[in-house]
Amino acid sequence: MSACTPRDEFLGRLRTGAAGGTGPIAPPTPRARFVRARTGPDGFMAAWRALGGTAERVPTDELRGAVAAFAAGRDGPLLAAAGLDVDADLRWPDCGSQAAAGAAVGVVRAVAAAAQTGTALLRADDNRGRAASLLPPACVLVIDAGTIVDTLGDYLRGTGDLPSQLVAVTGPSRSADIESTLVIGVHGPGDVHAILTG
């Protein structure tokens, strides 16, 4: 490969420049405290709705029906991540990117959620992948109510192994790049529906 500085040389410049060295430094890492604390499934749903998403809580055995009801009448196929127990027209990744991009709704399972900020946590491992929650304009996030923690920080501290990608989704895709005015649904899904089960 091309003109890359060897790591030792690169870091060596910092060793001469850095003031302190390598002593054990443990900066304080306080947890955020909130004026209005949101916890549990209700807290999550309130935060999620405040961001512009929709949310419902159903018994676990009614998940199929809830997904079908959300997808009903939409102009295009329903895409689900492999292994998710719902009725789907397309399965990611077998269908391929072009087909996935043509789906009307993507359904994925979140491994956890953070109530305070209304954040669903998606992992790329275990056949879930990345694209099903990203390409279609609408996304259903299935969340086991028992996996809800208070904050993203709580989840990160508690997780051991990491997949190649962990994405914390906090509401619908948005932008305020034109006239600082909020628009929903730019590249990612603008219509996001959380289904809490259990």
């Binding site: 990611w92 990744p93 790329a124 992948g129 190649s164 962990l166 914390a168």
Partner: peptide, 30 residues
């Protein structure tokens, strides 16, 4: 409170994962 997407990327696509880039390069600039 948080941006819509907080991506935490830890390496390229792993064996067994269904999608994601085959190669991940991070260029560190002085």
């Amino acid at each position: 409170a948080l941006t819509t997407y907080t991506n935490i990327i830890t390496g390229p696509r792993r064996p067994g994962e269904v999608d994601g880039p085959e190669e991940l390069h991070v260029v560190v600039l002085d």
